[in-house]
Amino acid sequence: MTAVVRDYMTPNPYTIRADAPITEAIKLMEEKQVRGLPVLNSNGTLVGLVSEADLIVREAPLEPPLYITFLGSVIYFESPESFHQHLKKTLGQQVQDVMTPNPHTVSVDAPISEAARLMVTHHISRLPVLDHDGQLVGIISRHDLLRALHNN
């Protein structure tokens, strides 16, 4: 029998509203000892995921992208978009300002191998788990995948 996400996910994960203050996310993550929270809008729909990395970036020094000017044009060596994202996260006051929007998700009935593939492919540590109606029912982390490997 193939192990599925339902067997190893954490059901009913702690969540936070998109319009909540960042300080509330930090407090909840500290109190509950979790490294990420699914973010819900006012209708209870999953709109993002906020992680320790999203919050820590606020403390990293803000460095503008490298560029040169050539014949009156500006040529960037890296995307100015990443600088704008960092700036938004640094100055943001609400969870929606720092979260990763539209997170990758996995179905509750997906094989564990699908969750592992998504995490490896997208370099992420956790996935919100959705039921057949698209409602959040759990979260699965790398640690949960290790438990699945141990049990097989």
Results as ranks from 00 to 15, higher is better:
Tyr8Thr: 08
Tyr8Asn: 10
Tyr8Trp: 14
Met9Ala: 14
Thr10Gln: 02
Pro11Cys: 11
Pro11Asp: 01
Pro11Arg: 09
Pro13Cys: 09
Pro13Met: 10
Tyr14Gly: 00
Ile16Tyr: 05
Ile16Ser: 02
Ala18Trp: 02
Asp19Thr: 15
Ala20His: 01
Thr23Asn: 02
Glu24Ala: 04
Ala25Leu: 07
Ala25Gln: 01
Ala25Phe: 00
Ile26Gln: 10
Ile26Lys: 12
Lys27Thr: 12
Leu28Asn: 06
Glu30Asp: 12
Glu31Pro: 03
Lys32Trp: 05
Lys32Ile: 02
Lys32Ser: 08
Lys32Glu: 12
Gln33His: 15
Gln33Tyr: 11
Val34Pro: 06
Val34Thr: 07
Arg35Ile: 08
Gly36Glu: 06
Gly36Ile: 00
Pro38Trp: 01
Pro38Glu: 02
Pro38Ile: 04
Asn41Val: 02
Asn43Ile: 07
Gly44Trp: 12
Ser51Ile: 04
Ser51Arg: 05
Glu52Lys: 12
Asp54Arg: 10
Asp54Trp: 06
Ile56Asn: 02
Ile56Ser: 00
Val57Pro: 01
Arg58Tyr: 05
Arg58Thr: 12
Glu59Leu: 15
Glu59Gln: 13
Ala60Pro: 07
Ala60Asp: 09
Ala60His: 07
Leu62Asn: 03
Pro65Asn: 07
Pro65Thr: 09
Leu66Tyr: 13
Tyr67Trp: 05
Ile68Phe: 05
Ile68Tyr: 03
Thr69Met: 11
Thr69Glu: 15
Thr69Gln: 13
Ser73Cys: 13
Ser73Thr: 08
Ile75Lys: 13
Glu78Asn: 11
Glu78Tyr: 04
Glu78Trp: 09
